[in-house]
Design a protein around this nucleic acid. Structure first.
Lengths: 150, 150
DNA sequence: GAATAATAGTTGATTTTGTAACTAACAAGA
DNA sequence: TCTTGTTAGTTACAAAATCAACTATTATTC
């Protein structure tokens, strides 16, 4: 290893380390929105994610949601149970393949979805407004790449 | 609310929602590094963060670390205990203010830090290599802004 | 200088997540 | 058809994060 490489490593700063930076940005930038779905709707993160998927894409199975959003099936299982208990979604056993449940929002679930979607949309706009339109677009592209979503 | 606003909201996609995107990118991009500090060093996330702070900035108090990295004091307290048990750090009671402990790495802790720092540095370079130098710099800037670090 | 408030750090109880093992249903090959 | 493997989803147990209450010490205020 050369001297210049050592010099670079001495410069290494945790606060510039991408995994750390990403994590801090993710936490900080979801705080305010979290307050809303947590305090106002009594939801956990996975719960609103499931709600959003069903609201956005319509009927899906737990497996579909897990694949699309890379959420582990045990998390989804628990979120689905809670949303069902709160009458936000209903399950229908698929008679062609009885292992599968087709999930969809109730009327109540759909109302909650639309309210939260509006809040989320405004919240996202507020975050993005810190940057130019081009920067924000580039940011989303880079995040998708880092997340392995392309 | 106008029709065009409704049209925009109908387009709203969880997968483009910044808090979601940031979280996915954070998780995916730290997975490989996590394997290393977890499996090879038996460390938790907060533990390597504390280790990195002490390695990078020298002697600090638990409070200093928490403030710098926005980590809650109970997490730090537990991480410090574990690092102390593994003889990676030592505490010295500050005699000017006996509430405070001054934390610093042992020789062993410093070795671990330097090994992990090299790995982290290479890992960061690998992540950043997905982008141009300018893009990567912009990304870090944007993340710092989102994280409230400026 | 005694009472009250504030700060550094710890501990315990509760909630949430992660991991692995499990059930039930379907699929495929011998 | 039997048996072996795979898939959808659940459950149980362990690990970790969160939140509130706690001790010990220092600072403030009357």
């Amino acid at each position: 290893m050369t001297d210049s490489n050592n010099a670079k490593k001495d410069d290494f700063d945790l606060l510039n380390f991408l995994p750390f930076l990403l994590n801090q940005a993710a936490e900080e930038s979801s705080l305010e929105f979290k307050q809303i779905y947590k305090n106002r709707y009594g939801m956990l993160r996975t719960e609103w994610r499931v709600l959003f998927h069903l609201g956005n894409y319509g009927e899906m199975t737990a497996r579909d949601i897990g694949e699309k959003a890379k959420i582990h099936k045990t998390k989804i299982s628990r979120a689905v149970r809670k949303l069902e208990q709160r009458r936000f979604l209903k399950r229908i056993r698929d008679e062609n393949d009885r292992r599968v449940e087709r999930l969809s929002l109730t009327h109540q679930g759909n109302s909650a979805y639309r309210e939260l979607r509006t809040i989320a949309w405004n919240y996202d706009a507020k975050l993005a407004a810190q940057f130019t339109t081009g920067e924000a677009a580039l940011l989303r592209m880079m995040l998708r790449r880092l997340a392995g979503m392309d």
